[in-house]
């Protein structure tokens, strides 16, 4: 019984801590950095614990006030985790500022191989208008 309450409380605290760690970058998060994943894990772990503890207490626990409080904590944790997810997802699509190209300057020199092993370079593309498409690739 007591364990369920502790787990639920601890879960809520974890969500709160994870959320607070994100707060300094809250106005904008251009992309998720490597240091952000542990925070996300803490938040989701916390939400999971909170859910687990609250459900256990609601099923086996005694006393209405306790149930109400734990239920509320669970909702708060889930809302926190959901809010952070939404925030991360909506901002991680933001891209850096566009590159500028001087009107009179040719494109930089390059030489790469295509899917068939043919070499393509800036020089080999001279003489006709070209559309260059940069993709983010697969990852």
């Amino acid at each position: 019984m007591g364990i369920a309450v502790i787990v639920a409380l601890l879960g809520t605290v974890l969500v709160a801590v994870g959320g607070l760690l994100f707060l300094p970058q809250a106005p904008q998060l251009p992309v998720l950095g490597a240091g952000d994943w542990p925070k996300l894990i803490v938040i989701y772990l916390g939400a999971g614990w909170s859910l687990l503890g609250a459900v256990q207490f609601l099923r086996h626990g005694q006393g209405r006030p306790g149930k109400a409080v734990l239920g509320l904590l669970m909702l708060l944790s889930l809302a926190g985790a959901g809010g952070v997810s939404w925030w991360v997802l909506s901002f991680s699509y933001q891209l850096p500022a566009p590159a500028q190209f001087a009107a009179e300057k040719p494109i930089p020199a390059f030489e790469l191989r295509d899917q068939d092993g043919n070499t393509v370079s800036d020089a080999s593309l001279r003489g006709k208008p070209v559309v260059l498409i940069f993709g983010r690739g697969v990852w």
Partner: peptide, 9 residues
């Protein structure tokens, strides 16, 4: 990665 972009050259 690359920023998605299309250049007209």
């Amino acid at each position: 990665l690359a920023r998605p972009a299309i250049l007209f050259v």
